[in-house]
Structures are given as structure tokens and as C-alpha cells.
């Protein structure tokens, strides 16, 4: 918990964006540790796989692609504090008033349904049992959605007409290796930026 709070504070106080993203990863890891400690193993692993494995890495890539110039003085943190106070107090209030009976309700649900506590092997086994039997149709539909994503990525990025009307995109190693990516940033070669081949 303390680890998570410290990481979250470092996320907003880090000077370089890349460090902020690294602290964000650290915060995600601490949150997943909290999940695992309270018994939600599946949620913890999903936090790691989805947030750390995919989203934070995506952030890192975007950060690296951005041109990081000189640091400008951003908004002073004093301006953000009132908003942060409001949000934080709101969250604390919800946690203090609502958390108790929400928790009671959840434990009651778990007892009545035997969902998380009752299964041997924890929630991963329970979810696996349900997903592959009762919800198998849903599982198949998810696979269709992934297929749409794949087809869509190909359809949207497939270029027509560069190598002829029906020729697919080809790799050209010579053009790729001779691209001028190490040039001085002030002398950007517009030709090399405009063409992606």
C-alpha cells in the first residue's frame, strides 16, 4: 500500500515523462500485489498483464517517439492541489461510508454463491470453469472480435497502388537501412519523414 502511494506521488512529481511512466508501472505492480493479497489472484495477474504488459509499454513507446525538448515549466502544482483535495476527500468519504456495507454485501454474495471462496484453487479455477463451459458462446464471440481487430488492422494499413494496383506492401531493406534517422533534429529531412517505406 505504502509502495503504491509513494509510486503514485512520484508519477505526478517526476520531471521526465519516462520516469513518470516507470513509476506508473511501479504503481500498477503495487496495486496488483494488493489484489493478490486480498485473494483476487486473477485480478492481480490481469492488472500485470494488461496494464503493465500492454498499456504502460504503449505509453513508453509513445514517450520515446515524442521529441523531448527542454523541460518547460508546466502548471504549478499549487494550482492542482484544490482539485486533488476535492477528489481525494470524495474518495475517502466514499470508502469510509460505503465501503463497509459494500464489503459486507460482497462477502454475503460470496458465501451465497460460493464463487471465490468456495472453489479449490482460488478464483482462477472458478473463472476458468465458468468461461469454458457456461460462457463458451461469449468466448467464441470474443475470438470473433479479435478477428475483426486483425482484419481491420490489415484493411486500414494495407496500401494500394505503391507497387502497382494489386501488389501488396513489400519490405525494401535498402531503403529502410538508408533512412536518415540520426540526422540533427533541427535539419529534419522532409522527404524521409513523408515516406514510410
Amino acid at each position: 500500500m505504502i509502495w503504491g502511494v509513494v509510486s503514485a506521488v512520484k508519477v505526478i512529481s517526476a520531471v521526465r515523462p519516462v520516469y513518470a511512466v516507470l513509476w506508473l508501472i511501479s504503481a500498477f505492480l503495487s496495486v496488483s500485489a494488493v489484489f493478490i493479497f486480498i485473494g483476487l489472484v486473477y485480478m492481480g495477474f490481469i492488472m500485470i498483464i494488461v496494464y503493465v504488459g500492454a498499456i504502460a509499454i504503449l505509453f513508453l513507446f509513445v514517450m520515446m517517439m515524442l521529441d523531448q525538448g527542454k523541460e518547460e515549466a508546466g502548471t504549478p502544482i499549487v494550482n492542482i492541489i484544490p482539485m486533488g483535495m476535492i477528489v481525494g476527500v470524495g474518495f475517502l468519504w466514499v470508502a469510509a461510508t460505503g465501503g463497509e456495507w459494500v464489503g459486507a454485501y460482497i462477502t454475503q454474495q460470496n458465501h451465497s454463491r460460493g464463487m471465490i471462496g468456495g472453489q479449490p484453487g482460488g478464483d482462477i479455477v472458478a473463472i476458468g470453469r465458468v468461461v469454458y463451459t457456461e460462457y463458451s458462446y461469449m468466448f467464441i464471440i470474443v475470438s470473433y472480435i479479435l478477428l475483426v481487430a486483425m482484419v481491420g488492422a490489415i484493411v486500414l494499413t494495407h496500401r494500394h497502388g505503391e507497387y502497382g494496383p494489386d501488389e501488396p506492401m513489400r519490405q525494401d531493406v535498402y531503403i529502410q537501412t538508408s533512412r536518415d534517422i540520426w540526422g540533427h533534429p533541427n535539419q529534419i529531412n522532409l522527404n524521409s519523414l513523408g515516406r514510410y517505406k
Binding site: 460462457y135 458462446y137 461469449m138 464471440i141 470474443v142 470473433y144 472480435i145 475483426v148 481487430a149 482484419v151 481491420g152 484493411v155 486500414l156
Partner: peptide
Amino acid sequence: LLIASVNWLSIYLAMELQTLSLFILVALKR
């Protein structure tokens, strides 16, 4: 599938299948 579903999960998935295909179809003219 959306027409045939009576469950929040299946409604959500079917609606996503429909909408994701539409996103791509809308942006087809690159």
C-alpha cells in the same frame, strides 16, 4: 447476435463486434 442476446455480457460483446467492424468500415476511405 445482439438481437438474440438476453444477457448483459452477450449484449456487450455482440455490440462490440458490431461497433468495432463499423469503426473500420467508416474509416475505410483512407
